[in-house]
């Protein structure tokens, strides 16, 4: 059975309660970006080109369909320059992700799962999702730990 990747804990950024207020910042990008810190609202994130991705995960059954922005589009928009990002979740879970992941794979910041908005009471509002069904090399604990849910901030370095 697959019960892994659960270490990828998560958090809501600003102690947000209830349905997200679209103009409240939910994701902060710091570090080597054009104008740090960049605070992004749900509206900002929805304005990025949206990408659909159907994939199995280590913590759910079946192959849910995720929708959200491509991580590389986000980082391009904020003018990120560096080697890696440190992703931070609500509960202080942190992990370093090489930027090459976002070039090599269509990694998305998912905001909906099977059409339902991801809630902070689940794994939302943003969950980093890898196309693990399309690339067998992604079916590995070293990638599973990068599936950060309840994403709060990204620090580019």
């Amino acid at each position: 059975m697959r019960t892994s990747g659960l270490s990828v804990a998560a958090g809501v950024l600003i102690a947000l309660a209830g349905p997200a207020l679209t103009d409240t910042p939910i994701l902060t990008v710091t570090g080597q970006v054009a104008d740090a810190p960049v605070e992004l609202t749900e509206r900002d994130l929805k304005a990025l080109p949206q990408h659909r991705l159907a994939t199995s995960t280590t913590v759910t059954d079946g192959t849910p369909v995720f929708e959200g922005f491509l991580m590389r589009d986000l980082l391009a928009q904020v003018g990120a320059e560096g080697e890696a990002v440190v992703a931070l979740a609500l509960n202080d879970y942190r992990i370093e992700i090489p930027l090459t992941d976002f070039q090599d794979f269509d990694v998305i910041g998912a905001m909906t799962m099977d059409g339902e908005p991801l809630s902070p009471r689940d794994k939302g509002p943003v969950w980093i999702v890898y196309p693990r069904d399309d690339h067998s090399e992604l079916q590995d604990i070293r990638y599973d730990t990068r599936w950060v849910w309840q994403l709060v901030s990204l620090h580019v370095q």
Binding site: A10, G11, V12, A15, L16, A17, L90, N91, P120, R121, D122, K123, Q150
Partner: peptide, 8 residues
């Protein structure tokens, strides 16, 4: 915030 985390 803690309530949401607990539920999640």
């Amino acid at each position: 915030r803690q309530y949401d985390l607990t539920l999640s």
